[in-house]
């Protein structure tokens, strides 16, 4: 009794908040590209924020529910329908046994997250359920979903079980029941031309003045060579004062590195642990979800802020999520 994959979609993988503590062994972090959307989808179904969910990319899967299940879909609007009826996002959804969830064309953003109450029953590999595509481990058999896969679920929390029971008792002809309230959408940004806040990078002074100025004043386009590992950008060529070699050192999510040809690359969830290109800047953690939802062709601009400024944004974002989690728990108790 579980979820059957009738169609896998473009790239559907199981991801949690990532695999930490093993980067010194060359084990990449991976995890959700948009951690904010993942955390909120988990909160909505009564899971821990770090629980693994499906990351659905642009063209989504068709999933047959073989039992009653409490789910939430957050992140991109990829035209989700259950038995042909539009499914609202950012809220708990009770899906009836036998219903078919499908996705259509991407309306806004590029990555959606589907959490299930209790989480997916896949093993922890190196302390995480994230799919490590290149090493072929973690997630569901170390790979994206394929037609015919059957995803088993772990037991839902008591809270979610109660919620499921209450929602299932609602008399409805519909194949699903959704709450009228929703949460978290206001935290997400889906602009096609966002300004991304960055902190100066370790080798910022390797670039000439003109290039440093261009980096923060000119737009950059997200090219088609963009995936979970990183986004290749196209824009003004960033030139070095003189050719210099960087001996490899750690890189992280949001590191903006510049190879000798001068077009920057932003490293994302599946980045390697180390790199040897000069780092012109580093994206503020709070703006990673904005990048995660961009499509090729999007235009971005960079705005430099201080480390202290970025950490202040980080703290206030975490405080909002904490209150949101508390609020969702209250709504689930009182408003049903």
């Amino acid at each position: 009794m579980s979820i059957r994959v009738n169609r896998p979609g473009l790239l559907t993988t199981i991801q949690d908040l990532g695999r930490y503590g093993l980067q010194q062994y060359g084990v990449i972090v991976s995890g959700a590209m948009d951690p904010l959307a993942l955390r909120i989808s988990n909160l909505l179904v009564g899971n821990e924020q770090h629980e693994a969910a499906l990351e659905i990319t642009l063209s989504g899967p068709a999933l047959l529910f073989e039992r009653d299940t409490l789910i939430a879909i957050t992140g991109a609007d990829l035209s989700a329908v259950i038995d042909g009826q539009r499914v609202p996002l950012w809220r708990p959804i009770f899906v009836k046994q036998g219903s078919l969830l499908e996705f259509g064309s991407p309306i806004r953003g590029s990555r959606a997250y589907m959490s299930v109450a209790g989480g997916f029953d896949v093993p922890l590999v190196m302390q995480s359920r994230s799919t490590y595509l290149r090493a072929g481990v973690g997630g569901f058999k170390g790979r994206p979903l394929q037609t015919g896969d059957v995803l088993h679920l772990r037991s839902a929390s008591r809270f979610a079980t109660r919620q499921l029971k209450r929602m299932s008792e609602k008399d409805s002809e519909r194949p699903f029941v959704a709450t009228t309230w929703f949460a978290g959408l206001d935290l997400a940004t889906y602009a096609d031309d966002p300004t991304i806040r960055v902190i100066s990078g370790g080798q910022n002074d390797w670039f000439d003045d003109e290039s440093r100025e261009a980096f923060v004043s000119e737009p950059f386009r997200v090219t088609k060579q963009s995936d979970r590992m990183g986004y290749r950008l196209a824009g003004p060529t960033l030139r070095f004062i003189q050719p210099r070699e960087l001996v490899s050192e750690a890189v992280t999510v949001g590191t903006i590195q510049v190879p000798p040809e001068g077009q920057p690359i932003i490293l994302m969830a599946d980045r390697p642990t180390t790199g040897g290109y000069a780092k012109i800047a580093q994206v503020a953690t709070v703006d990673i979800p904005v990048l995660a939802q961009l499509k090729p062709g999007a235009q971005i601009r960079f705005l430099t802020i201080s480390v202290e400024g970025a950490q202040e944004l980080y703290r206030s974002r975490e405080s909002i999520i904490q209150r949101l989690g508390c609020g969702i728990a209250q709504m689930n108790i009182e408003k049903q």
Binding site: Y20, G21, L22, Q23, Q24, V247, S248, E249, A250, T252, T273, T274, T285, V307, E308, Q311, Y314, R315, E318
Partner: peptide
């Protein structure tokens, strides 16, 4: 501190900014 990554000439330390600021 969350983890630390040694390289040729550097050690990078990943940390939780909620627990302590950079400085």
């Amino acid at each position: 501190m969350i983890e630390h990554v040694p390289a040729y000439a550097t050690v990078t330390i990943y940390y939780d900014p909620l627990q302590r600021p950079f400085h």
